[in-house]
Amino acid sequence: MASFKELLQKNSVVLVDFSAEWCGPCQTLAPILHEVKEHYGDKLSIIKIDVDKNQALARNFSVQGVPTMILYKDGLQVWRQSGVLLKSEIVKIIDKFQV
């Protein structure tokens, strides 16, 4: 499996979703992110990271609450938000960084 850093560099636009199975808002966000992925197809990669299974990675990114989404463009963090957003809000943010 590719490393986290390799995944960020391999894809132009990557949305990382830090979440947990027990998290109600994370469960609400999951189908919204599925719709966002369908909207963009291959232009966007979404990586879901379970903070309970990847505690060190969550700590490295200072994730203190879930869900936390971080958007990367060409390997650089360009946006970060904790909490649930509507599909339209996420699309609007991603569109700012799309080529």
Rank of each mutant, 00 (worst) to 15 (best):
S45C: 05
L44H: 10
K87W: 01
D50L: 02
L7I: 11
Q64T: 06
C23A: 10
K43T: 05
N60M: 10
E21L: 09
V78Q: 09
L7A: 10
F97R: 02
V63F: 04
P25N: 11
E21I: 12
M1G: 13
D50I: 09
N60K: 11
Q9G: 05
I49V: 15
F61C: 01
R80N: 12
G75N: 06
K5Y: 12
L85M: 15
K43R: 15
R80Q: 15
E6N: 09
Y72N: 00
S45L: 12
P67A: 02
G83M: 09
L57C: 03
W22C: 05
K5E: 15
P67F: 09
E89G: 05
K37V: 02
V16R: 02
V36A: 01
I46W: 00
D42K: 13
V14G: 00
I93P: 02
P31E: 08
A2R: 12
D17Y: 10
S82Q: 11
N11A: 06
P67G: 07
P67N: 02
E35G: 01
G24Q: 12
I32W: 08
L15K: 03
P31C: 07
N54F: 07
Q77V: 09
A56C: 04
V51W: 01
N54K: 06
A30G: 07
F18G: 05
F97L: 01
V14Y: 03
V36F: 08
K37S: 13
I90S: 00
V66E: 03
C26E: 06
A30Q: 13
S3E: 05
F4L: 01
M69K: 03
V14P: 08
Q77K: 15
M69A: 00
I93S: 00
V16C: 06
L15G: 01
I93T: 15
K53Y: 08
E21K: 12
G41V: 04
V99S: 14
E35K: 14
N11W: 06
N54Y: 08
N11F: 10
D17V: 05
V99F: 13
K53R: 14
A56L: 13
C26N: 03
G75R: 03
N11G: 05
A58R: 10
I90V: 15
E21Q: 13
G65M: 11
I46G: 06
S3K: 08
Q81T: 02
I94V: 13
L33D: 06
T28S: 08
G41I: 04
L76A: 11
V99A: 13
L71M: 05
Q9K: 14
L57Q: 04
K10T: 14
S62P: 01
K92R: 12
L29V: 07
S45M: 15
Q64V: 12
V91H: 07
I90A: 01
D52L: 04
F4R: 06
A56P: 05
S19F: 13
Q9L: 14
A30D: 13
L29F: 10
V13Q: 05
K96S: 14
M69D: 04
G41A: 05
G65W: 04
K73R: 13
H39A: 09
V91I: 15
F97P: 08
S45E: 14
E89S: 13
K92N: 12
A58M: 11
K48M: 05
I94N: 00
A2N: 14
